[in-house]
Nucleic acid binder design. Sequence first.
DNA 1: AGCTTTACACCTAGGTGATAAGCT
DNA 2: AGCTTATCACCTAGGTGTAAAGCT
Lengths: 213, 213
Amino acid sequence: MIVTKAGRRMFPTFQVKLSGLDPLADYVLLMDFIPLDDKRYRYAFHSSSWLVAGRADPVAPGRVHFHPDSPAKGAQWMRQIVSFDKLKLTNNLLDDNGHIILNSMHRYQPRFHVVFVDPRRDSERFAHENFKSFSFPETQFMAVTAYQNHRVSLTEGPGAPGQQATHSGAPLDSTPPPPSADHAAEDLPGIGPCPARVTRLPPGPCPPPLSSA
Amino acid sequence: MIVTKAGRRMFPTFQVKLSGLDPLADYVLLMDFIPLDDKRYRYAFHSSSWLVAGRADPVAPGRVHFHPDSPAKGAQWMRQIVSFDKLKLTNNLLDDNGHIILNSMHRYQPRFHVVFVDPRRDSERFAHENFKSFSFPETQFMAVTAYQNHRVSLTEGPGAPGQQATHSGAPLDSTPPPPSADHAAEDLPGIGPCPARVTRLPPGPCPPPLSSA
DNA sequence: AGCTTTACACCTAGGTGATAAGCT
DNA sequence: AGCTTATCACCTAGGTGTAAAGCT
């Protein structure tokens, strides 16, 4: 996943389908990213593989990204696929734009959180209750400032200068992602009236997600 | 005010400053437009004035424009100036984009509404209670499909092809607008916990609003 | 050498006034 | 003649990969 100083959107975009919410209740949707290990990596061109290159850099400021439509009713969230296409990643530790800060050459696990908003207790909105978190192992990725594989070219989406999407290139690290999963509420910790069921959506007609892309 | 078939944004934009709201309560902000009279007008070039040209056309479908940030907390609305810059006007009676439909060559009065959202009574959200309406006479305007005065040129804002703002041209009809007013809650009808105080903001460094622009 | 940063040409999306053509 | 409509060139804002330059 590309990170830049100014911040760049995730690609592929993290998308989920929600069900089981209370249609009339308010929910806040958000994401964060946690380090997968305490290591720093480097890419060996000759062997086309990632190698451990020492211990992790100091952890970046932990930030969260609220889905900009938050808060919204459960009915609204379940109406259609929820797309986190506004989320931006940066490697700038001093970032002042509210973007997610990641260390380049480190591995991360995106997390998705559904927070039930109880209107009767306004001050405890984001307390450590009434929410549920979801982690999809197949969305783990390596943060990089540039693609390490010249076969990878993402000529797509608004702003793409090229003509056609390529998305070629085999998986670039050693964790071939499993197919998309369906995490039910029962599978994960969570309290309170948030019976969320979340399905991550595969990123369209592309090959399996590229871990370093 | 320009109306087109596809819909065009108002200019100048309707802007208000809110105070007196409950910071923790939810409010929906919206606008609508009511005919000022039952007449149709035409513009006499030689005398540079508007003349009555018969009775009004059949009234267009009455629509409202919700401020896209709705619903939001009172604190959020009062935080800064609220701008209805997404509102679009059309003369297409069959419009399917949810734009405000107006008859060209007719006069209109914009109205601004503050709706208090009571979370305890979800089904009656937009009932005819708990809201307050504001009308600023100085925002009355004539709907036209093209500026009737060649001295008027709005070279400004995103998408403007020209180089500099002109905004020349004297008032184009017979209702020179008074300076901006401050309508307090006491001046207008309204029920329930919506102690809104609304101040319309003048449209920046321009001369007084052009009634037909 | 390996990784990061910057600059840049290019793209999409949405919006604008002017103009010319069309309608009544 | 008076008004409407469609088209157009042009603009801003935001986003993208590439390539060159910079850093360590």
